[in-house]
Amino acid sequence: MTSTPARAVTGWRRFDTLGVRLFVLMWVVLVAAHAAAHWIAVPPPPPGHAEPPAKPLEPFPSLPPGPLWQKNGPPAAHGAPRSLPPWQSIWVDYGVRLLVIALGAALCARWLAAPMRRLAGAAGALSQGLRPGQAPPALDERHGSREVRTTAQVFNQMAERLQAQFDARGLQMAAVSHDLRTPLTRLRIRLESLDAPIAAAAIADIREMNALIDSSLAVLHEQREAAPPAIVDLVALAQAAVDDFAEQGHDVALATVAPLRARAHPVALRRIVDNLLGNALRHGRQVRLSIGPDAGGVVLQVDDDGPGIAPEQIEAALQPWVRLGPGDSAGQGLGLAIARDLAERDGGRLALANRAEGGLRASLWLPAA
Rank of each mutant, 00 (worst) to 15 (best):
P320Q: 08
Q313A: 14
A330E: 13
V302S: 03
P320V: 06
A316C: 04
P326D: 13
P326F: 07
D304R: 00
I314N: 02
D305C: 11
D303T: 00
Q301Y: 00
P311C: 04
G308D: 01
D328C: 07
E315Y: 02
A310T: 06
P320F: 12
A330V: 14
E312S: 14
A310Q: 12
P307T: 02
G306M: 10
A310H: 11
R323Q: 09
Q319K: 14
G308M: 10
P320T: 08
G308W: 04
A330G: 14
P311I: 03
L300D: 04
D304H: 05
L300N: 08
I314M: 13
P311D: 13
G306N: 11
P326Q: 09
Q313T: 01
D328G: 08
Q301T: 13
E312D: 15
D303K: 00
E315P: 00
V302L: 03
I314V: 14
G327Y: 11
E315C: 05
G327E: 12
D328A: 09
P311E: 10
L324F: 05
D305V: 08
G331L: 04
G327N: 12
I314H: 01
A316P: 01
Q319D: 01
A310S: 13
V322W: 06
D305L: 11
Q319L: 12
G331D: 05
R323K: 14
D304Y: 01
L324P: 11
P326R: 08
L318R: 13
I314D: 03
W321S: 15
A330T: 13
G327K: 07
W321F: 13
P326H: 06
I309G: 12
D303F: 06
G306L: 10
D328M: 08
D328Q: 02
E315I: 00
D304M: 07
P307S: 13
S329I: 11
E315S: 13
D304F: 00
P307F: 01
L318D: 08
A330K: 07
G306R: 10
L300A: 15
L300M: 14
W321K: 13
W321C: 12
P320N: 09
E312W: 05
A330Q: 12
Q319F: 05
Q301H: 10
P311N: 05
G306A: 12
P311V: 05
Q313H: 14
E315L: 07
E315N: 08
D304K: 06
I309F: 09
Q319S: 11
V322C: 06
R323G: 14
G327V: 06
P307A: 15
A310W: 01
L324M: 06
P311F: 03
A310D: 11
Q313F: 03
V302D: 04
G331H: 00
P326S: 11
A317D: 02
L324E: 05
A316R: 08
W321A: 15
E315M: 05
P326Y: 01
Q319A: 10
A316F: 02
I314P: 03
A330P: 06
G308Q: 09
I309L: 15
P320W: 08
